[in-house]
Nucleic acid binder design. Structure first.
Length: 598
RNA sequence: UGCCCCGUGGUGUAAUUGGCAACACAGCUGGUUUUGGUCCAGCCAUUCUAGGUUCGAGUCCUAGCGGGGUAGCCA
C-alpha cells in the first residue's frame, strides 16, 4: 500500500504543524453504504482484500468532484489495508491528450495520494481484442454493418423493444473474418461495429446488443496508429478492472444501469469479477462541474485558464490557495450516499478556513487605505518603535515578529466613520480604538478634501497603552489593523469571489445560458499596503491578513511586485449586523468588508 | 412513455439493520477575546403522503406523490 495521507505521514506533517489530519474523527466515521458493502463482502469471503482504482479519462483537468472520488477510492484502500491504482480510461483517442495525463497525476499526488500501480486501458487493447474473438467464437458477439443512424433506429425506444440487426445471424466464422478485417483496417470509419449479442428487447437499453468496438482511423496518444478499432467504455472498463484484480469498482450513479452489462461481460468471459458500486457525484452551489462547461469557460476566456483561482478544478483550487488537507477534510465531511444532493459551497470555504486558522501566520495588510496621523507622536522618544505581534494567537509555537510603528499609518477606510452608530466599535471622531499590537489612539479631528472626502484622520496616542505593557487600565471595544506608511510595501491583491452569482448556474431559463449567471464581481484587484515581514513570503505561502481573510502568494509575483490571492474571507459577523441595521432602516453605514457574500 | 435509483431539520450525512431520531454546517441567543476571527454554552424535526404488519416502524409491506438517471459508433 503506497497511498498515503495518514496523519503520521511526514509529507502531510510538513503542511500541517503537529502532523495531524484536520479532520481525524472522519477517518473512522460512520460506515456509509460502500463501507458496509465492503464489510459484508469481506465477511462472506466474496473478496479477501480491498483493491480499488481511480479511472479518469484523460480528456480534461480534474475538479473537486473528482477529488471526492479520489478520496473515496484511495481512502477506502488505506482504511482496509488494500491498494488503489490510477488507471487512465483512454479508449477514445479523438478526445484525449497527454497534457491531461500529466496534470491528472500531478493533481492526485498534490491531494496527497500515491497509487499502487499506474495503468492505461490502452495497455489492455491486445488482451481485449483476444477476448473479443473469444466472444465471437462463443456466439456472444457479432459484426454489425448498420450505420450509426440505423443502429439508433434499430435500438427501439424507451417504450418499444428494438429490432435485430441483419448481422446478428451471421455465423461465428463470418463474424471472426469480419472482425479481423476490421482490425486490419479494411473498412472505413463507421462502416461496421462489433456488438455483443444480448437482448434487443431488454428493458435496459444498455443490454440491447451494445457496441463493443467502433472503427476509427485515428492515432492514439499512446498506441500510435497500431489500432484502428477502439473499445467502448463498457467493453474496456470492467475488463480492465478484472485484469487488475480490482475488487470494488466504484463509480457514479449514471453507470448504475450499466452494471448488468459489466456483469454480463465478466460472466461470459469467466474472468475475475469485481463488484461495481455506484455513489452520487458531487454538486456544489455557485459553481458548475461538467467538463464541457469548464472547458467552455476556459476557451471563451471567461476565466484566465484551467488554473484560474475561481475554477473548481484542482489546479484552480491549488492556485486559489486551498490546502490538500482542507479538500480531504471537505470530502470526508460531506459523506457518501446515493441521494443526488448539492453541497453548500460554504462547507468548502469552512474547510479551508478551519485548516488555515490553525496554520496560517497572521499579518497586517491594508487594502483600502486612509491615512491616520498621530499628532502627539513627537512626544515619543523615537520616530519609529518596533512592536511585537504574535503570529497566531491560537498557537504559541508560531512565535512572534516585530512590526514598525510610527506617527503616520495606513488604516482601512471602512474602519473609520465620522459619525457612527453605537454598535460600530471601530474608530470614530471623538472615539478611541486599539491599534492591533500597538497603542490605543483617540480621534480628535479629520481632514477633508474639497469634495468632503476624508483624507486624513488625526489622533493622539496614549503612551500608557502599549500592547502587552498596558498600564492604563483603559478598555476599548474595537481593535483595528494598520501598517506604517513609511515601512509598508505595496502589493497587488486579487480578491476572488464566487464565479457565479446564483446558487444553481445550471438551471437556466429558455434561451439563456449558464454564462448569463457569471458573477461580474468575482474578481476585484486592488493595490494594498502590507507590513514589511511579508517581503519574505514566497509563492504558495499562505497567511491571514488580520481581520480580512486568508491570502496566498500567487505565481504571478516577481521581484518588483508581489501578488496575493484571497483564498477565503474571515467569517464576518459585523457584515451581518450592519446588514440587519440597513434592513431595519437603521443608520449602520458600515459596509461589510471585502465584497464577501453571505 | 418503459426501466432503474433515491426521498430523514434551511443544508448534508447518521441511526447498533425493528427499540429514546444523532453529528456537522447554516441560522438565532448569550459568554470569552488586543482579529466583530478563534473558542465556549444554549435553541432550532409530526423522518414525502396514505394505509398495513408489529408490543414497538425513519427502517418491513402496499399504493400514491416528488426528485434524478437512461434511447452516443462519449466516458
Amino acid at each position: 500500500m503506497n497511498a498515503s495521507s495518514r496523519p503520521d505521514d511526514p509529507k502531510h506533517a510538513a503542511n500541517s504543524p503537529g502532523g495531524e489530519d484536520p479532520n481525524p474523527k472522519s477517518e473512522t466515521a460512520h460506515r456509509h453504504f460502500i463501507r458496509q458493502a465492503i464489510d459484508a463482502d469481506l465477511a462472506s469471503g466474496r473478496f479477501d482484500s480491498v483493491r480499488t482504482r481511480f479511472p479518469p479519462e484523460p480528456n480534461g483537468y480534474l475538479h473537486i468532484g473528482h477529488a471526492k472520488s479520489i478520496c473515496l477510492n484511495f481512502g477506502l484502500a488505506q482504511e482496509f489495508g488494500g491498494t488503489c491504482n490510477l488507471r487512465f480510461d483512454d479508449t477514445n483517442p479523438t478526445k484525449e491528450d497527454t497534457e491531461y495525463v500529466d496534470s491528472i497525476q500531478e493533481d492526485v499526488r498534490w491531494l496527497g495520494f500515491e497509487w499502487n500501480n499506474l495503468h492505461f486501458a490502452s495497455d489492455y487493447f491486445e488482451q481485449l481484442y483476444q477476448w473479443a474473438e473469444k466472444l465471437v467464437l462463443d456466439g456472444h458477439a457479432y459484426v454489425c454493418d448498420l450505420t450509426a443512424e440505423q443502429t439508433r433506429e434499430y435500438r427501439g425506444t424507451l417504450t418499444e423493444p428494438g429490432r435485430e440487426s441483419p448481422g446478428r445471424s451471421n455465423s461465428a466464422e463470418k463474424n471472426l473474418d469480419l472482425l479481423r478485417r476490421m482490425k486490419a483496417g479494411e473498412f472505413p470509419d463507421g462502416a461496421m461495429t462489433l456488438r455483443a449479442k444480448i437482448d434487443m428487447a431488454s428493458p435496459n437499453i444498455n443490454m440491447r446488443d451494445p457496441v463493443m468496438y467502433r472503427i476509427a482511423h485515428v492515432p492514439h496518444h499512446r498506441t500510435g496508429d497500431k489500432w484502428c478499432i477502439y473499445p467502448m467504455y463498457d467493453w474496456a472498463h470492467g475488463q480492465s478492472d478484472s485484469l487488475e484484480k480490482i475488487t470494488f469498482s466504484i463509480c457514479t450513479l449514471e453507470f448504475e444501469h450499466h452494471r448488468p452489462l459489466y456483469d454480463w461481460y465478466c460472466d461470459k468471459l469467466e474472468i475475475h469479477h469485481p463488484r461495481q458500486i455506484e455513489f452520487a457525484r458531487l454538486n456544489i452551489t455557485y459553481t458548475v462541474m461538467s467538463k464541457r462547461k469548464l472547458l467552455q469557460l476556459v476557451q471563451e476566456k471567461h476565466v484566465s485558464g484551467w488554473d484560474d483561482p475561481r475554477m473548481p478544478t484542482i489546479v484552480g483550487l491549488r492556485r486559489r490557495g486551498y490546502t490538500p488537507e482542507s479538500i480531504r477534510a471537505f470530502c470526508a465531511d460531506i459523506g457518501v450516499a446515493k441521494f443526488n444532493s448539492t453541497i453548500d459551497v460554504v462547507r468548502l470555504e469552512n474547510a479551508v478556513r478551519e485548516h488555515l486558522n490553525e496554520v496560517a501566520p497572521r499579518r497586517m495588510a491594508v487594502l483600502d487605505p486612509v491615512k491616520l496621523t498621530i499628532t502627539n507622536w513627537d512626544e515619543h522618544d523615537s520616530p519609529v518603535e518596533m512592536m511585537s505581534a504574535v503570529n497566531n494567537p491560537g498557537d504559541e509555537s508560531a512565535g512572534s515578529r516585530d512590526i514598525p510603528f510610527s506617527g503616520s499609518l495606513w488604516i482601512e477606510r471602512e474602519d473609520f466613520q465620522e459619525v457612527a452608530p453605537s454598535k460600530f466599535f471601530r474608530l470614530k471622531k471623538g472615539g478611541a480604538v486599539r491599534l492591533r499590537a500597538g497603542y490605543i489612539v483617540d480621534c480628535h479631528d479629520v481632514v477633508k478634501d474639497d469634495d468632503g472626502n476624508i483624507t486624513e484622520i488625526l489622533c493622539t496616542y496614549d503612551p500608557q497603552t502599549k500592547s502587552g505593557e498596558d498600564t492604563s487600565g483603559r478598555k476599548v471595544k474595537g481593535t483595528i489593523h494598520w501598517v506604517s506608511c513609511e515601512h509598508a510595501t505595496k502589493v497587488t491583491v486579487r480578491n476572488y469571489d464566487r464565479l457565479f452569482a446564483v446558487e444553481n448556474p445550471d438551471s437556466v431559463a429558455d434561451g439563456k445560458s449558464f454564462l448569463d449567471h457569471l458573477n461580474p464581481d468575482s474578481l476585484s484587484t486592488t493595490t494594498a499596503y502590507v507590513e514589511p515581514e511579508l517581503c519574505n513570503a514566497t509563492v504558495g505561502d499562505r497567511v491571514q491578513f488580520e481581520r480580512l481573510g486568508y491570502y496566498v502568494v500567487d505565481p504571478d509575483s516577481n521581484q518588483g511586485e508581489m501578488v496575493f490571492n484571497r483564498i477565503v474571507g474571515l467569517r464576518d459577523t459585523w457584515a451581518k449586523i450592519a446588514n440587519k441595521g440597513d434592513k431595519k432602516g437603521g443608520n449602520a453605514k458600515g459596509k461589510p468588508k471585502g465584497g464577501k457574500k453571505s
